[in-house]
Design a binder for these strands. Structure first.
Length: 872
RNA sequence: GGGCAGUUAGCUCAGCGGUAGAGCACUGUCCUCACACGACAGGGGUCAUAGGUUCAAAUCCUAUACUGCCCACCA
């Protein structure tokens, strides 16, 4: 016998052990079967997973399990990403805590430590995935820096190099002073911050007045190589062509014209610092201006800054401003809001810096990706992300792929005096030295769907699983990752790496704030799993994961899901308690049922179950587990447990025989098919319960995944559904009467029934009504009992004698309230039914329905009025 | 400065052309023989605002107002 409450821990342990022992999730090409392949977004090896990836993984697992149950060869590839800068930063923090740093350690020793860290971290992360119940094919575990992936990276680099798409050049790049490396454009985040706008006087050379420029970054003035004004700006007309002196260092620079300069901003004069500002760089290109570096890669001012050399950016700004002010150059300081650029890994302010870097040309690579989107080979769900994705590809800029860190794939370019640089995996010969930089971590991530299947080798896996089916990820890496995989996949294989991308939202805290360590609002999925069970956590996340929508996550939602899981447990427990010790040969089978012998409730629940299963399957096909979860939850709780199980009790506890067997068979069939349908969402408990039911359900499969897809057919019965809803309404009317008149729950009432639906109730549904409304007897109405209360429903009126219990004033008030309800309903429907436009233009079915509603409401109203008249 | 979402019950969110829904919270009754992680009954919304289309609009269109996100070279 099952315990009274579900205890997740032993069940989860048991299921995990069984899955692993059976290698249940392994996949290999199976001719004839449709592949359904998914590659996991490889988590960075920066530490343990938080709740965000848990959602991402639960979504993928639901899809994988669903498609497995549909008979497809589902393959979900696990793995991890070395995570470049992010991971190196983690290690650097550790080293700092040990009062050392990577330079003291040396490159080789540092990398060795990184390897060890990586091994431990992967263990943690993959352990978490396992614990979540992820149906990952563990034999395929991949890492972006393991041997096969390194091979893929080299091959990709070489191919792009041979095609002339890779080049090296000195460009203005986003430089993170703290991380000590260049970043690509999309690795930079922006944040609006308050700062100052400084108006600085640049004296004229000779004896003219000079100009006043406005800048937010006075400390870069030592790198100025011009002052620019708009060609149409009459205010500065006379200054153009003359020279001004940079204050404090008195270097002369020309005043030039450039259309980029805005009239309204500041003074209309712009100081041009090509080496430290993107716009200025472009102006510099247009006017062949030199680029003078005023800030070094370490964030300190260079020799060009004269007396300020060696000061940090921040200190230099304060000092320069103070000196300008003291010497009368500072004309004005305004408050000013501007968007500062921040490193997406360490959040420090980015310095645009001129440096020698490697780039991949993007325009040509983007074209096939655009085409794939436009002709539908690649689809994004929800569609709303397609436009931003498209715009990004259209305006794509070259990708800076070199990083000045140690952790990553070393750039496979070798140098030697007097030779052209060579691309090779190993030194081409003695005297060659390798480029010290490593590749952007996203370079290897971009190859993930190819690399996990052995590319560039022509493997069977690649032929079978590629292109993969769907990629599940958050919108924050749409460009960083999704777009690049599309470009690379198309460039190297001519096929999209995945046909669909499912973009989900971000898990936020319950007040809607982004989770972050610094805010202290991060949620540890393991803690929640320990507390409430894995299925509960999964269901809570999935039930809220509407496509593309962020989730405001509250632990309360996990409690709610836990309650549902417990409801599954107890309903199965109840069914098992009411089954015989020995199951019938082959289990209960619906096809053995005598359809004519079925009761209304049977026909109703089977019809409903069939429809619910169909809908849930469609929703999972459409990548919407939230909708599937919602409908399954509602059906199981509100319809199956609250009505069907209650109705079946009479037969279960009654005499043995055909009626009892039918109830048992239907309970088993409906429950076990629902458990199977829920399996993609809550794999542990559903499988455990399916197994417990298996002798009765006739399901021989050892695992829910192998039990096949849950479906019923041939049970659709609209008439039964309609009739059942009338019965339910009648029951509810009596229950309501009882509650409102404070009839003790234990007290069984006598009732008489009247109305057009009454004969049917008396003949066929008497047992239902008297059981659920707790009646001692139910008779046809003959005469109104002296002290009785009345419950009016569609086609039925119940009279309940309640001598001594009933309070007439209360009863009147109750009926008047019902009457008021009926009246307002009638007013609404009457407006419709009496509207000639409605009658002439609405579809016939609508009209008929409205008329029927009107008639029913009117009948109810009349009955209530009549009752009230008797009472007064 | 562009673009995209959202604005529905106290809270979190479904619904997206035919009489307003769920979970949680709330009120009342009940430890009724699966489940108090429960049962039954109930209260609570002029579906942001203003127009329009339609027999019919939370649902479609157009504005407006907030909120959030993405993108962008106003120093």
């Amino acid at each position: 016998m099952l315990d009274k409450a579900y205890d997740p821990k032993p069940v989860e342990e048991r299921r995990l052990a069984a899955w692993e022992a059976a290698k249940l999730f392994d996949s290999s090409p199976r001719p004839g079967a449709r592949p359904f392949a998914v590659v996991i977004p490889p988590p960075n090896v920066t530490g343990a997973l938080h709740i965000g990836p848990a959602l991402n993984d639960a979504l993928q697992d639901a899809l994988i399990r669903h498609h497995r149950m549909r008979g497809e060869e589902a393959c979900w590839v696990p793995g991890a990403d070395h995570g470049g800068i992010a991971t190196q930063n983690v290690m650097e923090k550790q080293l700092k805590a040990e009062k050392t740093d990577r330079r003291a350690l040396g490159r080789e020793a540092f990398l060795e430590r990184m390897q060890t860290w990586t091994r431990d971290c992967k263990k943690t992360i993959l352990g978490q995935l396992r614990r979540l119940g992820c149906a990952l094919d563990w034999t395929r575990e991949a890492f972006t820096m393991d041997e096969p992936r390194a091979k893929a990276v080299f091959h990709a680099f070489k191919t792009l190099w041979d095609q002339g798409l890779i080049y090296r050049g000195e460009r203005l790049v986003n430089w993170c002073v703290r991380c000590g490396t260049a970043l690509s454009d999309i690795e930079v985040e922006r944040e609006e911050r308050k700062g100052g706008l400084y108006h600085i006087h640049y004296r004229g050379e000779g004896d003219w007045d000079g100009v006043v420029v406005a800048t937010t970054r006075p400390e870069t003035m030592f790198g100025d190589t011009a002052v620019a004004v708009n060609p149409k700006d009459v205010r500065w007309e006379s200054a153009v062509g003359k020279k001004v002196l940079i204050p404090l260092i008195d270097r002369a620079i020309p005043v030039i014209e450039d259309a980029h300069v805005e009239f309204e901003f500041g003074t209309g004069a712009l100081k041009v610092t090509p080496a430290h500002d993107q716009n200025d760089w472009e102006i510099g290109q247009r006017h062949q201006l030199p680029a003078i570096k005023a800030i070094a890669p370490d964030g300190k001012l260079t020799e060009a800054a004269g007396p300020y050399a060696g000061l940090s950016r921040e200190k230099a700004r304060d000092q320069v401003v103070a000196d300008l002010e003291a010497r009368g150059f500072l004309r004005k300081k305004e408050d000013h809001k501007s968007a500062v650029q921040l490193c997406y890994r360490c959040n420090s302010v980015i310095e645009p810096l001129l440096s020698l870097q490697w780039f991949v040309k993007q325009t040509e690579l983007a074209k096939p990706a655009l085409k794939a989107l436009d002709d539908g080979r690649f689809k994004i769900y929800p569609e709303t992300w397609a436009k931003p994705y498209r715009d990004w590809l259209l305006n794509i800029k070259d990708w800076c792929i070199s990083r000045q860190i140690w952790w990553g794939h070393r750039i496979p370019v070798w140098y030697k005096e007097g030779e052209k640089p060579a691309v090779a995996e190993r030194a081409p010969g003695p005297g060659w030295t390798q480029d010290p930089d490593v590749l952007d971590t996203w370079f290897s991530s971009a190859l993930w769907p190819l690399a996990v299947f052995g590319w560039p080798e022509r493997t069977k896996d690649l032929a079978y699983y590629y292109p993969t089916s769907v990629l599940v990820t958050g919108y924050e890496i749409l460009y960083l990752w999704v777009a690049r995989m599309q470009m690379m996949g198309l460039a190297f294989e001519g096929k999209v790496p995945f046909a669909d991308a499912l973009i989900h939202g971000i898990v936020r805290d319950k007040s809607g704030k982004k989770m972050s360590k610094s805010l202290g609002n991060v949620v540890d999925p393991l803690v929640l799993m320990d507390k409430h069970g894995t299925d509960a956590l999964r269901f809570a996340l999935l039930a809220q994961a509407h496509p593309g929508k962020d989730i405001a996550f509250d632990e309360q939602s996990v409690v709610g899901a836990r309650n549902f899981v417990n409801k599954l447990w107890n309903s199965t427990r109840f069914v098992l308690m009411n089954l015989p010790e020995r199951p019938p040969e082959g289990g209960y089978r619906l096809d053995r049922l005598d359809r004519k012998g079925l009761e209304l409730a049977d026909r109703w629940i089977l019809s409903r179950a069939q429809s619910v299963l169909e809908t849930a399957a469609k929703q999972l096909d459409a990548y919407d587990p939230a909708a599937a979860g919602d409908i399954l939850y509602g059906f199981l709780w509100d319809e199956f447990c609250d009505w069907y199980v209650e109705l079946a009790k009479a037969r279960l506890q009654g005499p043995a025989g055909g009626a009892q067997e039918a109830a048992r068979a239907i309970l088993v069939a409906v429950l076990s098919s629902m458990l199977k349908a829920l399996h993609p969402l809550t794999p542990f408990i559903t499988e455990e319960l399916c197994l417990a039911l298996s002798p009765f359900s006739g399901d021989r499969a050892e695992f829910a995944l192998k039990a096949g897809y849950a479906a019923l057919s041939g049970w659709s019965d609209a008439a039964a559904e309609a009739e059942m809803s009338r019965v339910m309404a009648a029951v509810t009317a009596v229950r309501s009467l009882r509650a409102q008149l404070n009839v003790p729950p234990g007290l069984k009432i006598k009732a008489a029934v009247q109305g057009s639906f009454a004969p049917k109730i008396l003949a066929e549904h008497r047992a239902y009504v008297s059981a659920l409304a707790r009646m001692e007897s139910l008779e046809p109405f003959s005469a109104r009992p002296p002290q009785s209360a009345t419950a009016v429903s569609d086609g039925v009126t119940f009279y309940v004698p309640l001598a001594g219990v009933i309070d007439f004033a209360q009863e009147r008030a109750r009926l008047e309230k019902d009457l008021a309800k009926a009246e307002t309903e009638i007013v609404k429907i009457e407006a419709k039914v009496k509207n000639p436009d409605f009658l002439s233009r609405a579809p016939q079915a609508q009209i008929e329905e409205a008329r029927a509603q009107h008639a029913a409401a009117a009948a109810r109203r009349d009955k209530l009025k009549e009752t009230l008249a008797v009472l007064s």
